[in-house]
């Protein structure tokens, strides 16, 4: 659904901004892994394309009605515009969008892996898993301590939290996949959930597959619309019939089973993909 929302607050969190939006109707339909697509600027803005963000958390009933909170890394004119919103500034919200994380039917041991502010959707996921009696272990990684998101919050809700940074400024120096096998062994992991940069999702999917554990990963692909009409956010995914298709990360995703994404071929159209162009002649 599309709602004319408004900013309620913007607060700085490390290298990021947490933006709370009043968006009636969005929170009520939210499930972890959903995202929102926000319009940038007003009706005559020269920035036409919506920016998509995982939903960090939602409140169905606040003082003002339903609210949605997202985490923004202000690295371009659009995200800078969002980070500079002041209370009561209008923001047009479309959401909740996408295919959310699937939750286990029975209590299970779940390991959640977040890279940078990609960890945002994992906290409500952790809450809902806990509510189902699941064990939850969280691994958070980033380049630096400042680029981690939600370490304290993770500690409040998880059975264990393991932190890695590339520069060693907090936790273990290295990548999340350096510590993930040990965490999974200790937790007896039944399911892995991950969100973050594509390279990390690929590495996490490989580790999970190596242990025979299913992984669900929420991908980050550039989107123009977020609602499934523009066909820009595609990546090669193997279907249940074994056929690779270029599928939209906004509607079929953003959550995919890690072993169905052809990570090595992201950014290309594999030759065996359904409808792939027939190679031109020559050698």
């Amino acid at each position: 659904m599309q709602v004319r929302g408004e900013a309620l607050s913007v607060r700085r969190v490390g290298a990021y901004y947490a933006l709370t939006l009043l968006a009636p109707g969005v929170a009520e339909r939210f499930r972890p892994g959903h995202f929102v697509a926000l319009a940038i600027g007003d009706e005559s803005s020269s920035m036409l394309l919506r920016r998509s963000f995982s939903i960090y958390r939602c409140q169905e009933r606040g003082v003002y009605g339903g609210t949605v909170e997202i985490v923004v890394s202000a690295h371009g004119p659009g995200t800078e515009w969002l980070a500079s919103r002041r209370p009561h500034d209008p923001v047009d919200v479309v959401g909740p969008l996408g295919t959310p994380f699937a939750l286990p039917r029975e209590p299970a041991s779940c390991t959640l892996v977040g890279g940078g502010y990609g960890s945002a959707p994992l906290f409500t996921l952790a809450e809902r898993l806990r509510a189902r009696g699941c064990r939850v272990d969280i691994v958070l990684g980033a380049a630096t301590e400042e680029r981690l998101f939600g370490v304290l919050e993770a500690k409040r809700m998880a059975d264990s939290v393991t932190v890695t940074t590339d520069d060693g400024s907090l936790g273990t120096r290295g990548r999340v996949t350096d510590v993930l096998p040990r965490v999974m062994e200790r937790a007896g992991t039944d399911a892995v959930y991950a969100c973050g940069p594509m390279a990390m999702l690929r590495a996490v999917s490989d580790v999970a597959a190596g242990s025979g554990v299913p992984a669900q990963v929420a991908v980050e692909e550039a989107m123009a619309c977020g609602i499934g009409v523009c066909m820009t956010c595609v990546l090669p995914v193997v279907g249940e019939d074994g056929v690779t298709r270029m599928v939209r990360s906004c509607t079929e995703g953003p959550v995919f089973r890690g072993d169905t994404v052809r990570w090595a071929d992201v950014g290309t159209v594999p030759a065996d993909c359904l409808g792939a162009p027939v190679a031109a002649g020559g050698h």
Binding site: E221, T232, R245, G267, G275
Partner: peptide, 16 residues
């Protein structure tokens, strides 16, 4: 048709 590889879009002033 599979279409082309990504990136498939770029935002431009008042367009794409």
């Amino acid at each position: 048709r599979s279409g082309r590889p990504t990136p498939r879009m770029a935002e431009t002033p008042s367009g794409m």
